[in-house]
Simulated assay, not measured.
Amino acid sequence: MIHFVLLISRQGKVRLTKWYSPYSQKERNKAIREISGVVLTRAPKLCNFVEWRGHKIVYKRYASLYFCMCIDEEDNELEVLEIIHHFVEILDRYFGSVCELDLIFNFHKAYYILDELLIAGELQESSKKTIARLIAAQDSLVETAKEEASSISNIIAQATK
């Protein structure tokens, strides 16, 4: 099971967090500090697995972001690396070569993509095409809602003149 997902910049700023196990806010902050301290200071040639508090942290660096996932000790690290890579490929496909700024300004879309990929710390959908189709459907719903809200605003504005 994946306990949480962290996306951390090279400067140590958290860009995305998703918690699948119960942690208090104090525990979350402490975990983020500890994990970012360990991951950011590791040499690039070292393996991408770190033991941490009876769990394993699996991480991978893509451009300026570290994608980290905390898993149980007995879980398969290579499978989690594949999940991280799968998530990055979906982000790349959606944003067109995803970068840190895409995640900063469109964090809600990144969370939506992660929610389509993982549920309760387990892989939900392995098909990139299915996830892309679901994201496109969600985007079209958002656009329709914006258009309806705009037309309602126009009707109200005309009625109050």
Rank of each mutant, 00 (worst) to 15 (best):
M1H: 03
M1D: 10
H3A: 04
H3R: 03
F4Q: 01
L7G: 10
I8R: 12
Q11A: 14
V14Q: 10
R15A: 05
R15N: 12
T17F: 03
K18A: 03
Y20D: 05
Y20W: 11
Y20V: 02
P22T: 05
Y23K: 04
S24Y: 06
S24M: 07
Q25I: 12
K26Y: 08
E27A: 05
E27F: 01
R28F: 00
K30D: 08
A31Q: 05
E34T: 04
I35N: 12
I35P: 03
G37K: 01
V38Q: 15
V38N: 12
L40T: 14
L40K: 14
T41C: 12
R42M: 15
P44C: 07
K45T: 13
L46A: 13
L46K: 15
F49R: 15
V50W: 06
V50N: 09
W52D: 03
R53A: 04
G54V: 00
I57T: 11
V58H: 06
V58I: 15
V58Y: 08
Y59E: 04
K60F: 09
K60N: 14
R61F: 02
Y62A: 09
A63M: 01
A63T: 03
L65K: 03
Y66W: 10
M69S: 07
M69F: 10
C70H: 00
C70A: 06
I71R: 05
D75Y: 00
D75C: 02
D75V: 03
N76Q: 05
L78P: 01
E79H: 06
E79M: 10
L81V: 06
H86S: 01
F87T: 15
F87E: 00
F87Y: 13
V88L: 12
E89N: 12
D92P: 06
R93N: 11
Y94K: 07
G96N: 05
C99S: 07
L101I: 01
N106D: 04
N106A: 07
H108S: 13
A110N: 02
Y111D: 07
Y112K: 09
Y112F: 15
I113L: 13
L114W: 09
G121D: 02
S126I: 02
S126Y: 09
S127D: 13
K128W: 02
K129L: 08
K129D: 15
A132C: 08
A132P: 02
A136C: 07
Q138V: 02
D139K: 03
L141I: 05
V142C: 07
T144G: 04
A145L: 09
A145M: 05
E148C: 13
A149D: 11
A149W: 04
A149H: 11
A149P: 00
S150K: 13
S150V: 05
I152W: 02
I152Q: 09
S153D: 14
I156A: 08
I156T: 08
A157T: 12
A159D: 08
A159N: 07
